[in-house]
Design a protein around this nucleic acid. Structure first.
Lengths: 126, 126
DNA sequence: CGGCATCCCCTCGGATACTG
DNA sequence: CAGTATCCGAGGGGATGCCG
């Protein structure tokens, strides 16, 4: 029954940080507290809208904390909560796995695709 | 610059197993080799189509191996490759994190939502 | 039994324009 | 600077039906 728990619980995390940008935001904030524009600059390709949406979600989940300084021009800072920091550590394990095995995956992919090509271009009875 | 690697690499794994079903399939197969119908039965809510699609993807990435026995009725078995097994281990870390912290996340969420309610129902200057 | 093909909805996320 | 609002296309994924 552990396997069920694994699949089920894992699903719940992925529902939260499995989207396109959350992990990258967490990773960048892991470095230090940053302002909105800094984040936007450092996360390649993210739109203003998605940065906002992502940060709101992470804030809601208690992973990121948002601090507003009522000055002009506005200054808003984001940082990881302690909870967010532990999440980043857990993610580190995953990333380590990636570093070690992504090459294998790419190889397997190329292999598989080549095989499919064979099947297609081989019989060619059409 | 580690943070960049984290975000970037993590993205690549999530592109592969961050979808709705992959991790659950991996988790169930972690138990032992299973047939298509067994998987369908044990993964709650998955459609036939998505099980097929997910398994094909995992097979392509070298995470799952598909064995066809040419008998009638057809018998097809799926199991984790060694690569898939290492992935499941890595996922275990994540799941451990989930077990420990999902309650915190849910609490933070409830808290955040309650706060939003205040803002809405409070001023009520509409 | 173990698929593949089709239809179709609905969410994610990008582009753009406007505000305090 | 740090958002919010709106529009829109791409694709993920469910339901259903047919096939070897």
């Amino acid at each position: 029954m552990e396997h069920t728990a694994l699949g089920c619980r894992a699903r719940e995390i992925l529902d939260r940080i499995g989207d396109k940008w959350s992990l990258q935001v967490i990773a960048v904030l892991g470095e230090r507290t940053k302002r909105f524009t800094e984040l936007k600059r450092e996360i390649d390709g993210i739109s203003q809208r998605m940065l906002t949406v992502t940060l709101r979600g992470l804030e809601r989940d208690g992973i990121v904390v948002r601090t507003v300084y009522p000055v002009v021009p506005p200054r808003v800072e984001y940082s990881l909560t302690p909870l967010g920091a532990t999440l980043m550590d857990a993610a580190g394990t995953f990333v380590a796995w990636a570093e070690d095995h992504l090459a294998q995956i790419d190889a397997a992919r190329a292999d598989y695709d080549a095989r499919q090509m064979d099947v297609q271009g081989d019989g060619a009875h059409r």
